[in-house]
């Protein structure tokens, strides 16, 4: 029996993904991702800072997700909601766990390091912000060009040159999110807003190109048998391949 969801997809099909890079001129790197109706924009800005004494030569990379009230009537104006804070932490965990940006690469000279701020804003919320945010973050980082910094030896003067160098991104951890309903049976990939709202639980699997898992995030919810976990990991593997291909195509089009 083939189950059809409310938008006509089958359980293992993701929505159409569109990635657009470099649209924000004021940021060093930017990306706009549209997955179905969920729209996420990401901008990378950099500032110079002094590294911490306990980790000399290590730069900083801070990811922050904002869910403003304009994206969905559920979000009220005010301080960041618990959902945006927990997704921000999830994104930071992915960056540290996967080592996609090595912090020592961000060092310039001596104590001086780059502090990169990856700011992600959700413009329209139609479920599954996590996957789209991860894609936006990766697309923006791979297309980030930082100006070359030189420190003159005599007076320590910092010079920012016009030349830009591309940030080295070592791997692309891609996330696939599944939801499942109360009866524990029907697992669906890439939930829409209604599917996410009614779900009994959520499962996010993050994979890297070399096949290793970066984060298997199942924050409570109804229990899942091991067989379902394994099935989801296998499906995530095949679906992530499409995403890696998409990211690669985007990078290549930008270079040409």
């Amino acid at each position: 029996m083939v189950l059809e969801r409310s938008d006509g997809r089958d359980c293992w099909k993701t929505r159409r993904t569109i990635i657009n890079v470099g649209s924000i001129g004021t940021a060093y790197g930017s990306a706009l991702v549209r997955r179905g109706k969920t729209t996420i924009v990401c901008g990378v800005k950099g500032e110079l800072a002094n590294s911490r004494p306990e980790n000399p030569g290590d730069g900083f990379l801070v990811v922050n997700l904002d869910l403003p009230p304009l994206c969905c009537p559920l979000f009220k104006p005010g301080p960041p909601s618990e959902q945006s804070q927990s997704i921000s932490q999830f994104l930071n965990d992915i960056v540290t766990s996967s080592g996609c940006v090595v912090l020592s690469d961000l060092s310039i000279e001596g104590q001086l390091v780059w502090c990169l701020f990856v700011d992600i804003i959700c413009l329209e919320y139609d479920g599954n912000v996590i996957d789209a945010a991860v894609l936006a973050m990766l697309a923006a980082l791979t297309n980030t060009k930082l100006p070359k910094i030189t420190v003159s030896n005599d007076n320590g003067e910092i010079k920012v040159s016009e030349a830009l160098e591309i940030l080295a991104v070592k791997s692309q951890p891609v996330t696939t999110t599944f939801v499942y309903q109360q009866d524990g049976g029907h697992v669906m990939v890439d939930p829409s807003f209604e599917e996410e709202y009614d779900a009994a639980g959520i499962l996010s699997i993050t994979l890297q190109e070399d096949g290793s898992l970066v984060k298997l995030y199942k924050p409570g919810g109804l229990q899942l048998p091991d067989s379902v976990l394994e099935q989801c990991i296998a499906k995530a593997r095949s679906l992530s391949k499409d995403m890696w291909h998409l990211l690669k195509t985007v990078s290549e089009t930008v270079e040409t």
Binding site: I24, T26, A27, S30, V41, G43, V44, K45, N64, P68, P69, L70, P77, F117, D119, I121
Partner: peptide, 8 residues
């Protein structure tokens, strides 16, 4: 509500 993105 007027909001400016941090990277704007």
């Amino acid at each position: 509500q007027y909001s400016m993105a941090t990277f704007s």
